[in-house]
Amino acid sequence: MSVYLLHGLRPWLFQRLSAIYILLFSVYIGYSFAAAGGINYGLWREWLFDPPKTIAVGLFVIALLIHAWVGIRDVILDYVHNTLIRVVAFTVVMLTLIASGLWSAKILLISVVI
């Protein structure tokens, strides 16, 4: 498993960079919802229809998936010592994250098409 999927420095760095983006995005989206007086369907559609915002949401999903991967990978590396169980755990997490990513992509693409 290519040294536990991409070695040490890269995942660590991606974890930090994705954290920064997640933080900035959360503050921004929280602020714009608050400024609009709360979340409503129209506002949510605007977030998905406006292309720059669609991209921002898409990047947020990617950042979240990367962040989740590195975090769970760290927990597995720390606590799971049996190679077989570790490989199974990595695979389950990976498949779940990929499925979540594809699902998010589908929602975002549909929002663009419609």
């Binding site: 040294v3 536990y4 070695h7 040490g8 420095l9 995942p11 660590w12 990978r73 760290d74 590396l77 720390d78």
Partner: peptide, 12 residues
């Protein structure tokens, strides 16, 4: 030599 998931990067 310190690259890799374990030697250094288990530090949280």
């Amino acid at each position: 030599a310190l690259e890799g998931p374990f030697k250094l990067f288990r530090c949280h």
